[in-house]
Simulated assay, not measured.
Amino acid sequence: MDLSSVALAPKVLLHDHLDGGLRPATVLELAHEVGYSELPADDADGLARWFRESADSGSLVRYLETFTHTVAVMQTAPALARVARECALDLANDGVVYAEIRFAPEQHLTTGLSLDEVVEAVLRGFDEGAAEAADAGRRIEVRCLVTAMRHAARSREIAELAVRFRDRGVVGFDIAGAEAGYPPSRHLDAFEYMRANNAPFTIHAGEAFGLPSIHEAISFCGTDRLGHGVRVIDDITLPAGTDLAAHQFAGAELGVIANYVRDKRIPLELCPSSNVQTGAVSSIAEHPFNVLARLRFRVTVNTDNRLMSDTSMSKEFITLHNQFGYGWADFERFTVNAMKSAFVHFDERLALIDDVIKPGYAVLIG
């Protein structure tokens, strides 16, 4: 299994940040256009290397600091549309057939754009990129999640934005940012608004802060998915002497939260490379993805921030293959998990599973 073969596999991406997936060359060009002079490198290779090395700090707070530069060059409608268009093209070229891309509209207002204008520009870019990919023989459907920053106080306003654009490409709502000190329950008003309008949402939880944030996201806020959720492993006890490399976890004891997450089939938006970079886990070898997958949690594979992690869906698949020995049948299961968990309507999910995902893996499995 190599990158070229994995790139052929149909993939579904639920957790990817628009401002974390720019092409380095685009960052440079947009910075030149808007007169932004704070970039730490003046060539694409050097800039890519800086983002990757800076994100490898093991700290979520340090990791988030790298977004200062990408957000700075995404403050005009043309820039937002370009970044969105290139995002759709890059994902399509990597075999992604469905993606939900998230971003925080409130961070793109410095040149006078309204929240609606920001979302309109991004959706226009996604449509243009998907159309261009289709012309090249690559099918992709891209939808948007609008994100509120958990340290700010605009979450209700952003939730209203999500509902306002629900039939125009926005399929859900999210909160993101540093977890410590900013529990999801601070934004109950936004989540209650989403529920009142029968609109789905996900919450960044269980990445840096652990089980308490997962408990709040589920029990108090009623989240439909867990953004990361990797620390649910803290509520699972493996028998003494369990060999993680043996892939056998019989006798595992699940606590109340872990049982609830598994029983309710709450999707986990796991991002292996990013989880290591932010210090949520110590290494890929220690990542609980395999334990959770083999215990039949609804795990999904995601990139989080392709620029910062120097990754793609294909690279994440290869990483999991090399570490845990997964094959095509496993990746089909993870992909179907993700499509089942998408925020589009049931008939759209089913059509992609039956007409695109399963036939694509049937060819690979042979």
Rank of each mutant, 00 (worst) to 15 (best):
Ile233Gln: 13
His228Tyr: 03
Ala240Leu: 02
Val232Cys: 14
Arg231Val: 15
Val232Glu: 13
Ala240Ser: 06
Gln248Ala: 11
Ala252Tyr: 05
Gln248Glu: 14
Gln248Lys: 15
Ile236Pro: 11
Pro239Asn: 03
Thr242Ala: 00
Arg231Leu: 15
Gly241Asn: 01
Ala246Gln: 09
Gly255Leu: 12
Ile257Asn: 04
Ala258Tyr: 07
Leu254Tyr: 04
Ala252Lys: 07
Ala250Trp: 05
Ala258Gln: 10
Ile257Thr: 13
Gly255Met: 10
Ala240Trp: 00
Thr237Ala: 11
Phe249Ile: 04
His228Ala: 10
Thr237Pro: 01
Pro239Ser: 01
Leu238Lys: 06
Arg231Tyr: 10
Asp243Lys: 03
Ala245Tyr: 03
Val256Arg: 14
Thr237Leu: 02
His247Leu: 02
Thr242Ser: 00
Gly251Val: 08
Ala258Val: 06
Leu244Ser: 00
Val230Gly: 13
Ala245Gly: 09
Glu253Pro: 05
Glu253Met: 05
Leu244Asp: 02
Gly251Cys: 10
Ile236Glu: 07
Val256Trp: 14
Leu254Pro: 04
His247Ile: 01
Gln248Arg: 15
Gly229Pro: 11
Gly241Phe: 01
Val230Glu: 10
Val261Asp: 05
Gln248Val: 11
Asn259Asp: 14
Pro239Gly: 04
Ala240Pro: 06
Ala250Arg: 13
Leu254Trp: 00
Gly251Glu: 12
Gly241Val: 01
Tyr260Arg: 14
Ile236Phe: 02
Phe249His: 07
Asp235Gln: 11
Val256Pro: 12
Val230Thr: 13
Ile236Lys: 08
Ile233Arg: 13
Glu253Asp: 07
